[in-house]
Each structure stands twice: as structure tokens, then as C-alpha cells.
């Protein structure tokens, strides 16, 4: 991405790094013009930039990670699909009267084999985002996902899903068409599939709207993505009675990939490029592709029965409680 464009979407904590990078660039240009050798100085500055990058990205607060997860330049579902597949045909419609642009899906060829891919789709800019409803899917979106997953199961194709949504759409029509029913039905149906299911949280995983395509054999999260029971803003408004406490809520809710790995809720964290997936989208895509390949190979070696069993026991053990007489 051109540097100027990147500056338009700069997050606060990225600023010192970006300024340093801009200065290095400036010096380089000046040196070129004046034909002076500044390679030593540049090497020093670049080393400093690396240290700074390391410092910034290794000590992000949960609220900062949330910002990264929602970064407008963060690769989206369609970006990843286009980057990692050899072929891709998007399919449309829930066969019930709607086609939701906030949840996309289709058939792809990945490492030579057909798979069904689907996921929430956010927009690139305001106009695109309005069309995509900011990645908030309607009941029609979940029913399109269901239809595509049924298709995958029928033809023995692995299901690869991508989570990137603030949550399912909360609107009058969504309620009228049964948002709750649509998500619930997917949750149960996903336990029935014979084919492998792999889910990756690529950006923001918001509540039931995320889980509605997330009952998987393998659940991955990109390093700076988040997955949460309720948006930190909503949680702050409800529990703190103050929406401004969302930073505190983001920490308390344990929404980062590292937290969720520790809680045993996800299988693997996918390492992001040093300055986040949006800085080097192709590098992030390569990581994703590598992990999907390994995962599909591993799951394909199992019998359908064993996969369903794995899926069941994986979710069955989620939860922390005490049992027995009170000591």
C-alpha cells in the first residue's frame, strides 16, 4: 500500500513508527538527490524502527487490538479468498428471497482441491461499507451460509469459513425474519456435517453473529483479531452503565487471541506480519494458506465419524465450573 494512503488510516499507536518510517524515506530521497552515502545512518534508523515496531506490537492493549481488528485496511474475506485460491466462483442467495452482501460465499480451488469458502464481508470505504452493512449479516446471510455448507457436505468439500463481523444485524426486519432462529439452526446443523470445517477469525468476531458460521473442527485466530461475547462498547454500557468504559470492558472480557488460546477456546494463533496484517496482506495470506493446507490434510485423514466426534467433544469441554460438595 502506498505510504500516503496508509497515513490516512493511521491508528494513534502506529504514529511514532510511521513518522520514523517517513523520515527514513525522506533521508533516502535527499541522499539520492545529493549523491551522498548515508547507508550507515539508514541502517541505524531502520534498526530503531524495528525495535519500535516490536515494542509497539508486542505490548498492545486489548482496546488497541480491537482497533487493529477493525482496521479499515485489514484484509477482508474476499481479499484472502482471492489471494489464496487458484479458482473462485461466488454463489448468491438464500433461496428464500434474499442475497446478503454482508455474508459472501462460493466454491474455490485451494491447493488443487475444491472447497466451499464463506465469511462475513466488510466494506473498504464508507460507500462499500453501507452496501455491505459493515459486515453485519441478516437472517438471509446465515441461511445462505447454511445452504452453501449443505452443498459442501453433499459434494464432500471441506468448509472454510472466515469470521469478521461486529455482530449479527439488529434491525426490525432481521427480527421479523428470525435472526435468532437462523443462527441457532446453523449451530446445530454444523455438528451434523461429515466434511471438515475450519474457521478463522480474521478481524472482529462479534457474538452470536460470528458463532453462526463458527462451529468448526479447527478454530484459528489471526494474532491481532478479537472474538467476543458482546462488543466492549455494549458491555460497558450494560455493566458499567457508561459506554466510555469500553477500554476497560475490552480488557475484562478477554477477547484477544492469546487470552482465548489460554482459555482453550481456540486451536491456534496465526502470526501476523510485524506491523499487522494490513501492512503486509500477502504475507498474512501466505500464513493463512499454509495453515489451511495443514489443517485440511490433517482433518481429511480422519473418518467423517471421527471428525464429528472431534467437533462435539471440542465444544463439549468448553466451560469452567466447580463440581462436588462445598469443602
Amino acid at each position: 500500500m502506498p505510504k500516503t494512503e496508509r497515513r490516512n488510516f493511521l491508528l494513534d499507536f502506529e504514529k511514532p513508527l510511521c513518522e520514523l518510517e517517513a523520515r527514513i524515506q525522506q533521508i533516502r530521497e535527499l541522499a539520492d538527490e545529493n549523491q551522498v552515502d548515508v547507508s550507515e545512518e539508514i541502517a541505524q534508523l531502520e534498526a530503531r524502527a524495528n525495535v519500535l515496531r516490536q515494542e509497539i506490537f508486542s505490548s498492545l492493549t486489548p482496546a488497541q487490538r480491537l482497533q487493529l481488528a477493525r482496521h479499515p485496511r485489514r484484509p477482508s474475506t474476499l481479499d484472502y479468498i482471492q489471494a489464496i485460491t487458484e479458482e473462485w466462483i461466488e454463489l448468491h442467495g438464500d433461496r428464500g428471497g434474499s442475497d446478503d452482501p454482508a455474508l459472501v460465499g462460493g466454491i474455490a480451488r485451494l491447493n488443487g482441491k475444491p472447497v466451499v469458502m464463506l465469511g462475513h464481508q466488510k466494506g473498504r470505504d464508507t460507500k462499500d461499507n453501507v452496501a455491505r452493512n459493515f459486515g453485519m449479516a441478516t437472517p438471509g446471510g446465515y441461511r445462505k451460509a447454511l445452504r452453501l455448507m449443505n452443498h459442501a457436505n453433499k459434494f464432500g468439500m471441506p468448509i472454510v469459513t472466515f469470521i469478521d463481523t461486529p455482530g449479527a444485524w439488529a434491525g426490525v426486519d432481521a427480527e421479523k425474519l428470525g435472526q435468532g432462529e437462523a443462527i441457532a439452526y446453523n449451530l446445530r446443523q454444523m455438528f451434523s456435517y461429515d466434511v471438515p470445517i475450519i474457521t478463522t477469525v480474521i478481524g472482529e468476531g462479534g457474538s452470536g453473529g460470528a458463532l453462526g458460521i463458527g462451529v468448526a473442527d479447527h478454530l484459528f485466530m489471526f494474532e491481532h483479531s478479537v472474538y467476543t461475547v458482546a462488543s466492549p462498547e455494549a458491555c460497558a454500557a450494560i455493566l458499567w452503565k457508561d459506554a466510555k468504559k469500553s477500554g476497560q470492558a475490552a480488557s475484562a472480557l478477554k477477547i484477544t487471541s492469546r487470552d482465548l488460546k489460554e482459555l482453550g477456546l481456540i486451536d491456534r494463533i496465526l502470526t501476523e506480519p510485524a506491523s499487522g496484517a494490513h501492512s503486509e496482506p500477502l504475507e498474512a495470506a501466505a500464513t493463512l494458506k499454509q495453515n489451511l493446507r495443514e489443517s485440511i490434510e490433517k482433518l481429511s485423514a480422519m473418518t467423517p465419524e471421527a471428525r464429528r466426534k472431534l467437533r462435539y467433544s471440542k465444544f463439549r469441554q468448553m466451560g469452567i465450573f466447580e463440581q462436588g460438595e462445598i469443602s
Binding site: 457474538s207 461475547v229 455493566l239 475484562a252 465444544f315 463439549r316 466451560g319 469452567i320
Partner: peptide, 18 residues
């Protein structure tokens, strides 16, 4: 879902549906 248990709560939806 019970927010005080974070993602553990959300996953109960899948667990019960299973």
C-alpha cells in the same frame, strides 16, 4: 449470554446446540 464469563458463555450456545 453471561458477559462476566466472556467467550466461555458464547460457546455454551454451540455446546448446547451440539
Amino acid at each position: 449470554a453471561r458477559m462476566q464469563e466472556g467467550m466461555l458463555s458464547l460457546m455454551q450456545m454451540a455446546k448446547i446446540s451440539g
